[in-house]
Nucleic acid binder design. Structure first.
Lengths: 208, 208, 208, 208
DNA sequence: TCCTAAGCGAGACGGTACGTCTTGTCTTCCA
DNA sequence: TGGAAGACAAGACGTACCGTCTCGCTTAGGA
C-alpha cells in the first residue's frame, strides 16, 4: 500500500480519487488528532500510537499515509504554507491604496489571530522551532522579493540585503510570538503598527 | 550513588572534592563528547550510549551525574550562560567611553566568533532552538535591564517595553544566526555596526 | 460474497455451477500457485499475498474461496485423499492374484513416484508434517481395515491392534520419505519389496 | 547486549558466569514459560509476548537471549538431546546382561514416561513435528551406529542399511506417539516388548 | 438486445506480532 | 567509594501479514 506517494494532483485518476474520499478523510483525522495533541503536550512526547488512537485509526494505516510523525507534521505545515502564500497574494493586491512596504505583516498577524490555537501549537514546545522555521522561511522569501523590488542604489559601506531580510523576519517572528504568548490581547492592527514603526523608524523614536 | 545532587558548593566537603577530581573530569569528558557529537549530527539523534562511548564512560556513570541527555545540555548551557553574563559585565564597564546603548551586541558577536564551532552546533538542527532559546533568554534579560534605565516617558500611543525587548532580541538572534551560517566572514565590528544601525535608525535608511 | 459455502455438491445449483466455470478456474489457479510455491520455500513462510500474486488473483478473491492459507491446503489435501483412496480401491481389486496383505504399499509408492514434486513439497519443511499427517491418517484407516479382516485370535500376551497399525504406518511413512528424499532412485517395486519384507519378517533376517 | 553468544562453556569466564546467576535464571524462566504454554496451545499460536509475560521478563530481555521463538525451542531441544544421549550411554553400559540389540528403546520409553508432559507438548500441535524431528534424528544416529556394528555380510538382493534405520525409527516414533497419546497407560516394559517383537519378528507372528 | 446479478481486481483499513532500539534502574565487581 | 560493566523492564519504533470491507469493472444468463 503506497498511498503516501500521490501527493501531486495528476488529474488523470481524478475520478477515482474523488470516489475514494476515505483517504482524504483519514488524513484529515490524523492531522486534526495531531494538532489537538500538540495543544496538550510537547511535540516530542507525542506517540504515533496516541495520534492513531485520537484519530481512531490503525497504526498501519498511519504508516500507509505518512512515513513518520515528522512527515505528518511536514504535511500539515505544507497546508499552512499554502494558506499563507495565498493570504499574502490577496493582501498584496488589496493593498494598492495602502503603504505597500512590509505588506506581509498585517496579513500574518490576522491569520495568526484567526488560527490562534494552531499557532500556539506550532510555537510551543521544542518542536515549535521546526514549524516556526517553516514560517520563517516563507516570510524570508516574501521579504526578499519585496526588497528586491526596492531601490538599493545605495552608498558605499552598505548592509547586505540578506542581513536585512533576516533582521526583519527575526524581529517579526519575535514580536508575533510575544503577542501570541500573551494571548493576542491587542488587536492585529495595533501590533502591526508597532512592528512597522520599529522596523521603519528604529527604536530610538520610542526609547530615545 | 547521588553525585548529581551536590551542585551547590557547600564549602564543607571542599577537601573531599579537591581530592576527588575524578568527578569533575568525568563531567568534562561527557560535556566535550556531547558538544563534539552535536557538531556531527542532530541533537535529537544523539543517544546517551553514543555520548558515553565518545567520553569513554560507563552508562551508569552518566546517570550518576546527569538525569538525562537534556540535563547534560542544560548543564552545559549554564556554563555558557555564566560566560556570557561575565562578558557583558566586563563589556559594560569597559564601554564607558562608547555609546552604551545596545552594549551587549558587540560582545556577543565577538564571543560567537571566538567559539564558532560551539555556536554552529547550538544553532544547527532542530535542537538548536533550545540552546538558542537559552541565549535568547539571557539577552532578553540584559536588554530589559538596559531599557528599564532608559527614558520611556514618551508619547501617547505607546509600544510596550516587552515588545521592544522581544523585537530587538529576535532581530539580533536572526542576524547573528545569518552571520554564523555564512561562516562569520565579516568582522564582528562590521556586523555589529550593521545591526546597531538597523535597530536604531530603521531599515528605511538602507532601503528607502 | 460467500462462494466458499457451497462445497458439497447439492445438485440443485448444479446447472449454475457448470455455467460459472470461473469459480473452478480461480480455485485451480490458487491451488497450483500454492503447490508451486511450496516447492520453492517453507510452507510457513508463504504469504497469502504471494499465492494471490502467483495466481494472478485479488486478495479479496482468495478470501471469497478459502478462509485461510490452511483452508487452501486442507482443500488441496482433500483432493489428494480422494485420489489415494481411489487408487487403493483399484489396487485392491486388481490384486486378487497377488498376496493381498499390506496391499496399499505398492500403490502408494507408485503414486508418490508419479507425483514426485508434489510429494517432495508435502514432505519438506515444517509444514510437511501436516500434509504427511493427512496421508498417515488415510493409511491408518486402510491398514486398520485390513487388520480387522485378519485373524488375530492369537496368543495370550497380545499386542493391541492399534499399536500394530501405528507401527506399520510409521514405518511405511519413514521408508517412503527416505526413498523420496533420496530422489526415488530405486523402482517402486524394489522399495515395496524391501518394506514388505521388513514388516513381515522383521529386521533380524536382514541384520541378524 | 549480546548475551546469546556465549553458549559454549569456554571455561575462562567461568568465575564471572557463576557469579551472574541471573542469566541462567532468566533463561530457565523463559524455557519453563515456553513449555507450559505449549501444553496449553498450539506452538505456532504462541506469542513472544505471551512467553515473556508468563516468564515475567521484558521483551527486550527475551531477544537478548534468543533470536526468536524458534531459537528458544531449539535451545530447549538441545537440553533434551543431551539428556537422551546421556540416558542411552548409561542404558548401554547397564545392558551388558540383556539382549543388546535395539538397546535404545526401553530407555526412550522410560524417559518419555518420566517427562510425560514435556513429550506431550513436543508431540502435539503442528510444531510438534520439529521437536519430534529432532528426536528422530537422535535415534537415527543411535540406530545407525548399532547397525554398523552388526553383521551385514548378507545376501545378494539386500536392503540398504539406511532404509532399515529409517524403518526402525519411523516405527518406533509412531508406537511411542501412539502410546503417549493414549496416556502412557501400559508400563514401559510392555510397550518396549511389543515394539521389539514387531521389529525383530515381523507382524506375521502377531497377525498371521 | 439490454439488464442485472455475480465473480473478480484493487486496495483502504483496523489489528496484531514482529524484531530493534533507547531509556533509566539496579546489581556486581574492581581499583 | 567512584566508576565500569552489563542484565533487566519498559515501551516506541517501523514493518509485515492478516482478514474485512467497499468500490467499480466485467461478463454471462435471463428478460
Amino acid at each position: 500500500m503506497d498511498i503516501a506517494a500521490d501527493m501531486s494532483g495528476n488529474g488523470v485518476s481524478m475520478a477515482k480519487r474523488q470516489i475514494d474520499r476515505r483517504v482524504a478523510r483519514t488524513r484529515a483525522l490524523l492531522q486534526q488528532a495531531h494538532v489537538s495533541l500538540i495543544l496538550k503536550k510537547d511535540y516530542e512526547a507525542i506517540t504515533v500510537d496516541e495520534i492513531c488512537e485520537a484519530a481512531n485509526v490503525g497504526r498501519s494505516t498511519f504508516y500507509a499515509h505518512y512515513t513518520s510523525k515528522d512527515d505528518l507534521r511536514r504535511s500539515g505545515l505544507e497546508h499552512l504554507r499554502r494558506q499563507l502564500v495565498a493570504r499574502q497574494v490577496e493582501a498584496r493586491t488589496a493593498a494598492h491604496a495602502r503603504d505597500r512596504s512590509l505588506g506581509f505583516s498585517l496579513a500574518m498577524f490576522e491569520h495568526a489571530r484567526d488560527h490562534l490555537d494552531l499557532y500556539k501549537a506550532l510555537a510551543g514546545g521544542r518542536g515549535g522551532a521546526v514549524a516556526l522555521g517553516t514560517i520563517r522561511q516563507i516570510l524570508s522569501d516574501l521579504i526578499r522579493n519585496e526588497l528586491a523590488a526596492t531601490n538599493d542604489r545605495t552608498s558605499t559601506d552598505h548592509i547586505p540585503r540578506e542581513a536585512v531580510v533576516q533582521y526583519v523576519v527575526g524581529a517579526f517572528m519575535a514580536v508575533m510570538t510575544w503577542w501570541l504568548d500573551g494571548g493576542a490581547k491587542l488587536p492585529p492592527q495595533r501590533v502591526d503598527a508597532m512592528f512597522r514603526r520599529l522596523v521603519t523608524e528604529g527604536i530610538l523614536h520610542a526609547f530615545p
